[in-house]
């Protein structure tokens, strides 16, 4: 009898591949999860407070209450992701035992370890991790991440950091693939990533896992821009449920993500959406409050 093997690298990265072209939405209640599913989210991210609230309320941000995660899992049929603190492998063990479909080892929560990230290989559940550049992405993949999202600056509604990070990652991949074989050793040293992985990215001209964009996406046009910059899909955090009309905005962002190359569709879905989330300019944030700088 053929054996069934769970948690293989291809099963882990495979789920991310199924999410491509889609929008993953932050939700804090089962009702919000249902709204997100009805609006066409490919997955929801269960958390206790959206990044905008973590930012304004301060304090230590941790994994959500298991009851909340159970309620959200019970309320939707699409995949449910949940966040663990960077390096907090026990939060990750708890989330796996609750049956979440993906764990986000996230800089949006307060880091639990300022040296090590979670060793993600022993887990059956797949992980998504944030990255601001190619080296960071490759280090996370080396630790077992099955999906990468550029970090952006969560909870701001300012898309400029998301733009910077996806452009940086894409640009570094392009530069790497232009290098000759003998230059890849130094590239690996500079990227602080294993030579084998560096060679693979240089050869294939893309990451070995799916690359989404996150952090500051608040409008349909933001989402379409991230797709045009080469993202496989988008995470929208505070942008939906901190806006005036979450259900309509969620639907509009889903449509714009699919038809990202059609300005008429993006224009159409952008009409009459009501207020976008109140934004914070990233340049006004003092450095210690920039979440993207968490993770190494």
């Amino acid at each position: 009898m053929a054996e069934k093997t769970v948690g293989t690298p291809l099963v882990k990265s495979g789920l991310a591949e199924m999410l491509k072209g889609g929008v993953i939405m932050d939700v804090v209640t089962a009702d919000q999860a249902k709204i997100a599913e009805d609006a066409g989210a490919v997955a929801v991210m269960a958390l206790e407070r959206v990044p905008a609230d973590i930012r304004s309320q301060g304090g230590v941000a941790r994994m959500s209450d298991p009851d909340l995660i159970d309620q959200i899992i019970a309320s939707v049929s699409i995949p449910v992701m949940a966040k663990a603190r960077i390096g907090h492998f026990v939060e990750a063990q708890v989330l796996q035992s609750l049956g979440v479909d993906y764990i986000d080892e996230s800089e949006v929560l307060s880091p639990a370890d300022y040296v090590n990230h979670i060793d993600k290989w022993p887990f059956t559940v797949p992980f998504v991790c944030g990255a601001t550049n190619l080296g960071e992405a490759l280090r996370r993949i080396t630790e077992g991440a099955a999906m990468i999202r550029s970090k952006g600056e969560a909870g701001t509604g300012d898309v400029s950091e998301a733009t910077k990070h996806i452009r940086t990652i894409k640009g570094e991949i392009a530069a790497l693939s232009a290098k000759s074989e003998d230059e890849l050793y130094v590239a690996a040293k500079e990227l602080q990533a294993p030579i084998e992985l560096v060679r693979q990215v240089a050869r294939e001209k893309q990451l070995p896992v799916v690359l989404f964009v996150a952090g500051g996406v608040a409008t349909p046009a933001d989402a379409a821009m991230m797709m045009q910059l080469g993202a496989d899909g988008v995470f929208v955090g505070s942008g939906i449920f901190k806006s005036g009309n979450p259900a309509e905005r969620a639907k509009a962002i889903v449509k714009a993500t699919t038809a990202f190359n059609d300005p008429k569709v993006v224009a159409d879905v952008s009409r009459g959406l009501g207020e976008a989330m109140v934004g914070i300019n990233v340049s006004d944030l003092p450095a210690p409050h920039r979440l993207a700088e968490r993770g190494w």
């Binding site: 495979g14 049929s77 979440v100």
Partner: peptide, 17 residues
């Protein structure tokens, strides 16, 4: 039946004749 094997932790690789 959708998601008939359960969530992602039940996802698997195998071979089929």
């Amino acid at each position: 039946e959708r998601n008939a094997f359960g969530g992602q932790v039940e996802s698997f690789e195998t071979t089929i004749v």
